[in-house]
């Protein structure tokens, strides 16, 4: 195959894949800006009314705020718990690595429908009687994102020579805690950022746990979407496009932030 031919082939394949992936989004978007789209190939007319309605609907805005609040809280909790745990395992208790790698995939193994039953039982009494409140959602969501947070942090930890770096810091007068804060943590920045963005993207789309564990008592974005699906398809489409756009912007910001800013001018080594 000649060079231009093979390029044509590659471009065609890529375009088809992108087309397939984009089709539902484009369709949803079109639906969200159409007045009526029934028996015709193209919509009858275009309008931004669905978006106006959406953004002036207090119930929606609150559900969005609730979703964001729960997502960030769960993610914060997860990082606060996982970061020191990973550090201790990788620095001192290396024989636990294997066990950790097994444990972190558990959230994948238990389907939410099953998991929620157990979670309601655990959080109904005992130390944390939070069943039915938004707290249970936070304490559930942080388990959902453990695999992603764990892997992101571990990958960036393994990319640096953290043992020697901590030893060097200790010889220069730091204790283990200071060495972790000054020397290890800044180098985990990229991993932490990617953990945060993946987690938020996943959690903001979570429905099953939210619906079973708290439902309308604490209406999140997905629960709201579910409860208003009967109102109008156009309205639901506008909602989906809105939160999709949010995730898109969020991820874009992620890639901008993760490019570590540097003071020095990059010059080539001599």
């Amino acid at each position: 195959m000649s060079k231009t031919n093979s390029r044509l082939y590659h471009n065609t394949v890529i375009s088809i894949v992108i087309g397939i992936l984009l089709l539902p989004i484009v369709a949803t978007f079109l639906y969200s800006i159409s007045t009526r789209w029934g028996a015709t190939i193209l919509p009858d007319g275009l309008t931004l009314n669905w978006y106006l309605k959406l953004l002036t609907e207090e119930r929606f805005l609150w559900s969005f705020v609730r979703s964001l609040g729960v997502c960030f809280a769960a993610m914060g909790l997860c990082i606060v718990l996982m970061l020191p745990a990973i550090f201790v395992v990788y620095y001192r208790l290396r024989y636990l690595k294997f066990i950790c790698n097994m444990i972190v995939i558990l959230p994948f193994a238990v389907p939410p429908v099953v998991g929620s039953v157990g979670l309601i039982q655990i959080y109904s009494d005992g130390l944390l009687p939070i069943s039915g409140t938004f707290w249970i959602l936070i304490f559930t969501y942080f388990t959902v994102i453990i695999p992603f947070v764990y892997r992101s942090i571990v990958n960036s930890l393994e990319a640096i020579n953290y043992v020697d770096m901590i030893d060097a810091a200790k010889l220069l007068g730091a204790n283990t805690f200071k060495a972790f804060i000054y020397v290890v943590l800044p180098n985990l920045k990229k991993g932490l950022l990617s953990a945060i963005f993946i987690s938020i993207s996943i959690l903001i789309g979570e429905f099953v746990f939210a619906n079973i564990l708290v439902g309308t008592r604490f209406e999140t974005l997905q629960v709201y979407l579910y409860n208003t699906k009967a109102v109008s398809g156009h309205y639901s489409s506008a909602l989906v496009i809105f939160y999709f756009a949010f995730i898109f912007v969020f991820t874009y910001l992620a890639s901008v932030f993760s490019k570590v800013e540097r003071k020095s001018v990059k010059r080539r080594k001599n």
């Binding site: 020697d164 770096m165 030893d167 060097a168 800044p186 180098n187």
Partner: peptide, 10 residues
């Protein structure tokens, strides 16, 4: 001085 340099990349 370590074999791996053990410098702080940040």
């Amino acid at each position: 001085v370590f074999q791996s340099y053990a410098l702080f990349p940040n």
